Computed example of a mutant assay.
Amino acid sequence: MIAFINVNKTYANGTTALNNINVSIEQGEFVAVIGLSGAGKSTLIRCINRMHDITDGQLLVDGVDVAKLKGKQIRRFRRRIGMIFQSFNLVTRATVINNVLVSLVPDLPMWRRVTGIFSSNQKLKALEALEKVGILDKAFIRVDQLSGGQQQRVALARTLAQSPDIILADEPIASLDPVTAKLVMDDFKRINQEMNISVIMNIHHVEIALEYADRIIGIRQGEVVFDGRAAEVTKDVLSYIYGGKMEEAAASAEERAFHVR
């Protein structure tokens, strides 16, 4: 379980990104975090794996006080949490399987890290992860030969190979065309349901959030202004979350997709 208890986050420049956040997320939930750009969506999910430190309050993951972790404790903790980015964060000149194997490097003894030699079991684990996202046939192809959607699936496979309990996704389909975006979202949904992995996703595409997520958290100016089932989200709720700027939000999402076409 993830629990935000009176959490605040203020950046060094004085900007308040999160204000008195109180949210609990159970294992296996699929949660979409929506709101205008700059509302605090990315900050919220990045606090979970300590990419950002909270300023006040308490953030617990299965009873672990995340803010109190140090050094190796943080690295071990992050092994349980996969992170998917909009930019994929892949080594494009390397093969698909080598990109997936990168997630297993922290578990290697030093001599394997230095030599880059992986065991047969680790290679099998990487191939199984690729099979789960439907691109096993691309295992030995260089990443720069793949489409954007296939690259995002490599990133998802890399995360699955580390056997996470939680997947955080920061605008994972923002740079994909609508057809490819739905295919990638199908992967997220299937993994969530079949493997009981919690998925917390920051997403600009409201209609896709409502279609795939079980639960919607709406953030406006750093505060949670809606937290409920996707089926409970109405036009009035969306207007409240976006402060009457739904058109601006839709245009922003469309602009992101346009830049990669």
Score class of each variant (00 low, 15 high):
Met1Pro: 08
Met1Glu: 09
Ala3Met: 15
Ala3Thr: 14
Ala3Pro: 15
Phe4Lys: 11
Phe4Pro: 12
Lys9Tyr: 08
Thr10Trp: 11
Ala17Gly: 15
Asn20Leu: 12
Ile21Pro: 12
Glu26Ser: 09
Glu26Arg: 12
Phe30Arg: 07
Val31Trp: 10
Ala32Phe: 08
Val33Gln: 08
Ile34Arg: 03
Leu36Asn: 15
Ser37Ala: 14
Ser37Asp: 14
Ala39Tyr: 09
Gly40Leu: 14
Gly40Trp: 11
Lys41Ile: 10
Cys47Asp: 15
Asn49Leu: 09
Asn49Gly: 06
Met51Glu: 06
Met51Asp: 08
His52Leu: 02
His52Pro: 07
His52Arg: 10
His52Asn: 12
Asp53Gly: 01
Gly57Asp: 09
Gly57Ala: 11
Gly57Val: 13
Val61Ile: 07
Val64Ala: 07
Asp65Gln: 10
Ile74Gly: 08
Phe77Lys: 05
Arg78Ala: 07
Arg78Gly: 10
Arg80Ile: 11
Met83Cys: 12
Phe85His: 15
Gln86Thr: 01
Val91Arg: 01
Arg93Cys: 09
Thr95Asn: 01
Val96Trp: 02
Ile97Glu: 04
Asn98Cys: 04
Val100Pro: 00
Leu101Tyr: 01
Leu101Met: 04
Val102Cys: 03
Leu104His: 00
Val105Ser: 04
Pro106Gly: 13
Leu108Val: 13
Met110Gly: 08
Trp111Cys: 10
Trp111Lys: 14
Gly116Asn: 08
Gly116His: 06
Ile117Cys: 13
Phe118Arg: 05
Lys123Ser: 02
Leu124His: 06
Glu128Ile: 03
Leu130Met: 00
Glu131Gly: 01
Lys132Asp: 03
Gly134His: 01
Leu136Pro: 00
Lys138Thr: 00
Lys138His: 04
Ala139Gln: 00
Leu146Asp: 02
Gln151Cys: 14
Gln152Ser: 04
Ala157Gly: 03
Thr159Ile: 04
Leu160Gln: 01
Gln162Trp: 01
Pro164Asn: 03
Ile166Pro: 07
Ile166Arg: 06
Asp170Phe: 15
Pro172Ala: 05
Pro172Leu: 05
Pro172Phe: 00
Ala174Val: 08
Ser175Trp: 05
Pro178Leu: 06
Thr180Gln: 03
Lys182Ile: 06
Leu183Tyr: 04
Val184Arg: 05
Val184Trp: 02
Asp186Ala: 09
Asp186Met: 13
Asn192Gln: 01
Asn192Ile: 09
Glu194His: 05
Met195Gln: 05
Ile197Ser: 02
Ile200Thr: 09
Asn202Arg: 11
Asn202Ser: 15
His204Ala: 11
His204Phe: 07
Val206Cys: 10
Leu210Trp: 00
Leu210Lys: 06
Tyr212Gln: 07
Ala213Cys: 07
Arg215Gln: 15
Arg215Val: 10
Ile219Asn: 05
Val225Glu: 06
Phe226Leu: 05
Asp227Arg: 04
Ala231Arg: 15
Glu232Pro: 15
Glu232Gln: 15
Glu232His: 15
Val237Gln: 05
Tyr240His: 13
Tyr242Val: 04
Gly243Tyr: 09
Gly243Ser: 02
Gly244Lys: 05
Met246Phe: 07
Met246Leu: 08
Glu247Leu: 11
Ala251Val: 09
Ser252Arg: 12
Glu255Pro: 09
Arg256Ile: 04
Phe258Cys: 05
His259Ala: 13
Arg261Leu: 06
